[in-house]
Nucleic acid binder design. Structure first.
Length: 301
DNA sequence: AACTTATGACTAA
DNA sequence: TAGTCCTAAGTTG
């Protein structure tokens, strides 16, 4: 479920709330028990995200080599957080879509709550815990292994300075131009651009006016460059806002469609058959690689 | 209780 | 392209 914006927020949360602290690592569910034992008690060095991949670094006493916890949330993985009054993490990041309620006011010394549901990994410090459930990937990597995972990814629109990084922009444009597959498939290909998922695909292609069905090698460099800029802008906004919002206020109908502001939170995503917010043409939907694809056949050529 | 859905990605054929 | 994996919530019967 999460796209790159969520992963970068997650990395920032771990960096702020866990870095520099000694950390207990366990696997309440049991499936990560052996790996958890290898880093239990180590200190968190820091965390970062590349695309949809999260890396949390753990330093050990020499000669133990540093190890990275590598997590990919997949379609429905999530982290839940809880901690004392100085613990600034949100209640959850990732699925479930409806955030869990904040913990009730605590009194006295903070104590970690019991894990709820299937918790693959629990990271626990003296002021907060993070529980991971439902990841599609969760493993321990050496630094070399971490670098090779990152090397397989395309440019990340949320990497520091990405929006003004000409080389990253060119890598994206060249990557798409080199293939005959549909652009709609290419922007979801993590080796072409890292972090774009089903919502950013639909919305960025709409804003760029590019049909997702058009072959990559038949989209002009100019339009692909503009598409990269749009992806950078949308994802930076999502990271800041804490949720994916793509509709320019000038395009939002007033009063809101069917009285529901959420009905025009996106231009085309999940709006099959409803009028395009720009031109009124019914939004179209078709399956692409097993995912639902949405676009306006009139605005997107 | 069974079925459906979800912001993902891999493998086999 | 189909099947598989990971989990929880919502809908249907």
């Amino acid at each position: 479920m999460p796209e790159g914006d969520v992963l970068h927020r997650l990395a920032a949360t771990f960096d702020q709330e866990f870095a520099g602290r000694a950390c207990r690592v366990s696997s309440p569910q049991g499936r990560f028990a052996a790996s958890a034992a290898r880093i239990d008690g180590r200190t968190v060095a820091g965390a970062h995200a590349v695309g949809k991949h999260l890396f949390v670094g753990f330093v050990g006493a020499p000669p133990a080599e540093p190890l990275w916890l590598h997590v990919h949330l997949g379609l429905y993985g999530s982290w839940r957080f809880a901690g004392d009054e100085d613990f600034a993490a949100p209640p959850s990041i990732g699925a479930p879509r409806v955030p869990v309620e904040a913990a009730s006011p605590r009194e006295g010394a903070w104590r970690p709550p019991e894990p709820v549901g299937q918790v693959r990994v629990r990271l626990s410090t003296d002021h907060g815990v993070a529980d991971l459930s439902g990841p599609t990937r969760c493993e321990l990597l050496s630094d070399a292994e971490r670098r090779s995972v990152e090397a397989a990814l395309g440019p990340d629109p949320l990497a520091p300075g990405a929006s003004t990084d000409g080389a990253a922009r060119r890598r994206f444009v060249d990557g798409v131009r080199a293939r005959r597959r549909a652009v709609g498939e290419l922007v979801m290909d993590q080796s072409i651009v890292a972090g774009v998922g089903n919502i950013y695909r639909a919305e960025s292609l709409f804003l760029a006016g590019v049909s997702p069905l058009r072959r990559g090698d038949r989209v002009s460099r100019t339009r692909l460059g503009a598409l990269w800029d749009i992806v950078c802008r949308l994802m930076a906004h999502g990271l800041e806002a804490g949720r994916i919002e793509t509709v320019d206020p000038g395009d939002a109908p007033e009063p809101p469609l069917s009285g529901d502001p959420e009905a025009s939170r996106w231009y085309v995503y999940h709006r099959t058959g409803r009028p395009c917010l720009r031109c009124g043409t019914p939004v179209r939907e078709q399956a692409m690689q097993g995912r639902r694809l949405f676009w306006c056949p009139s605005c997107q050529r």
